[in-house]
Design a protein around this nucleic acid. Structure first.
Length: 500
RNA sequence: GAUCCACUAGCUCAGUCGGUAGAGCACUUGACUUUUAAUCAAGGGGUCCGGGGUUCAAGUCCCCGGUGGAUCACCA
């Protein structure tokens, strides 16, 4: 914004910024430029002092942080200093600091970064405080902070200037601490199970492993179009072929699609692949990952998400897609398994959510599920056995005449949290499925998957029977931090630039 | 992409029927040696998101545009 451009000059500044610049200028002139300071020996943090007062009482500590509030009383004054752990009160007295130092202290502004050395004590009213005996300015806040009581409310500015959100709104800080703890918990759980954490390319020649429109970029030296990955799946399965047996990756996927409270163009996925197991094994590991993450940050498996009580206690409910649709609509797709004609008869009596005309048994079953079941699932539920049409990388479920695959998705409170299947390891079948995807693509389905011949070649060397699972980390964090929007769990969500 | 809502001081928000732009916090000056949304007194601070229109007169009404939010659509 043009406002910002002017602020390095000292003309036309809002007056509060001018006052602060003047104070900084005076410091520089008197040889006390705070920006020359490089280190500080911090000996304690706010939270540990407050939590362990008995140990700290009358001990001398040095704390550092940001001044969040000031209460002057004349020749004594109080200030709240906030560091990464919390806030502690600083008590300053002219008698102790001397007139010069005390006057300089009074000249500080809310937002300034300072270090304070002094003894820990309790004030008359019982507030644990530090008796300021020596202090140092680390950096001047040249701009006033958002209001202390209401904090920063404007959602636009909270996302664009997350540092202000973090310094003002403590619950936001908690959310991102929880996010880190959830991811650490997932890593630990998988590491303990013998999984190897790996990293695979974000720059792909063929964006595979999911149905989504990719971002396109360009490599100058090779004069090559590259795509940001939409999923790491095909790389991770190559590692199973390579004999690593248990691998996982936590990383960013990029999908060039719409944005919403549940979708950001870049988002974090956890994908894992485990040899010698199937989608039942993936259900068990999903239950373990979700419930342990929940226990880790909430201390209980009974939570509420946006007012809805939920129990993340394993085992989660399991229901086949056919059974779920039967219960919701009365239509039993198993009684006309694979018959496109029979299925089409039912589309007339239903109002299905779909942008295209549905002609296949599997597509109609899936549309019934999405229309009548999906958003009505509240408690954690594995919906299992998906039609083959939308599952080109999953193994066929025996006894279903090739119509269903061994796949599940985990739904909680109407949202999808995970997707898993028994991995297709028959290279000839995989090649046929890719061909089918190619045909759909040529027929106009922009999101049909692209054939990856190198991946099929890898399967020709032999991939053991394998289970694979993907969990959307952002959505899991939303669930476990009771956040209504994905933007609340991304430090810097994708935003349109201001101006033009 | 569609619809609705929001945008006013650094921040949080009022602003009536179209008639001179308001409050709290923050800031400046002064008082105050245990406050904690400190208190008291005085003061300064505005591109009312941008552009156009109607009108004697627009923060307010109309049109176009920007950003955000919600819902829908899209999105396994």
């Amino acid at each position: 914004m043009s406002k910002n451009d002017a602020n390095t000059s000292t003309e036309n500044l809002p007056e509060q910024m001018q006052f602060r610049r003047d104070k900084l200028g005076a410091l520089r002139e008197s040889g006390e430029n705070p920006y020359l300071i490089t280190t500080c020996r911090v000996t304690a943090h706010a939270r540990e002092i407050v939590d362990n007062f008995e140990q700290f009482e009358e001990q001398e500590v040095t704390v550092a942080g940001r001044l969040m509030a000031r209460r002057g009383m004349g020749k004594v004054s109080f200030a709240d200093l906030s560091d990464k752990t919390g806030t502690i009160q600083i008590f300053s007295k002219q008698d102790q600091l001397g007139e010069t130092s005390y006057d300089a202290w009074k000249g500080l502004d809310v937002g300034d970064l300072v270090a304070v050395k002094g003894q820990v004590f309790k004030t008359r009213t019982g507030e644990i405080s530090i008796r300021n005996s020596e202090w140092q300015l680390h950096a001047k806040a040249l701009r006033p902070l958002p209001e202390k009581f209401h904090g920063l409310r404007d959602t636009d500015m909270r996302y664009r200037k997350r540092y202000l959100d973090l310094m003002t709104n403590t619950d936001v800080r908690e959310t991102f601490i929880d996010r880190s703890r959830i991811i650490r918990c997932i890593r630990k759980t998988l590491d303990d199970l013998g999984f190897l954490e790996v990293e695979t390319p974000l720059l792909n020649n063929i964006p595979g492993g999911a149905a989504a429109r990719p971002f396109i970029t360009h490599h100058q030296a090779l004069d090559l179009h590259l795509y940001l990955r939409i999923s790491p799946e095909l790389y991770l399965k190559r590692l199973i072929v390579g004999g690593l047996e248990r691998v996982y990756e936590i990383g960013r996927n990029f999908r060039n699609e719409g944005m919403s409270t549940k979708h950001n163009p870049e988002f974090t996925m956890m994908e894992l692949y485990q040899a010698y197991t199937d989608y039942h094994g993936m259900m068990e590991i999903t239950e373990k990952l979700v419930s342990e993450a929940c226990l880790h940050v909430k201390g209980t498996l009974s939570i509420t998400y946006q007012g809805t009580p939920l129990s993340l206690e394993p085992p989660f409910k399991r229901i086949t897609m056919i059974e779920a649709v039967k219960q919701a609509t009365g239509i039993n797709f198993a009684s006309f398994m694979g018959s496109d004609e029979e299925a089409k008869k039912h589309t007339k009596e239903l109002e299905l959510k779909s942008r295209t005309t549905l002609t296949k048994w599997g597509d109609i079953l899936n549309a019934c599920f999405e229309t009548y079941v999906e958003d009505k699932i509240t408690q954690p539920t594995f919906v299992i056995d998906y039609p083959i049409e939308d599952s080109p990388l999953a193994k066929v479920k025996p006894g279903t005449d090739g119509r269903l695959t061994e796949r599940f998705e985990l739904f909680i409170d109407g949202r999808e949290y995970g997707n898993a299947y028994t991995e297709l390891n028959d290279p000839d079948d995989q090649r046929r499925r890719f061909e089918h995807q190619r045909a759909m693509r040529e027929a106009g389905d922009e999101e049909a998957q692209l054939p990856d011949e190198d991946f099929v070649e890898a399967l020709e060397y032999g991939m053991p029977p394998t289970g694979g699972l993907g969990i959307g980390i952002d959505r899991l964090v939303m669930l476990l931090t009771d956040s209504p929007s994905i933007r609340d769990v991304l430090l810097f969500p994708t935003m349109k630039p201001l101006g033009f």
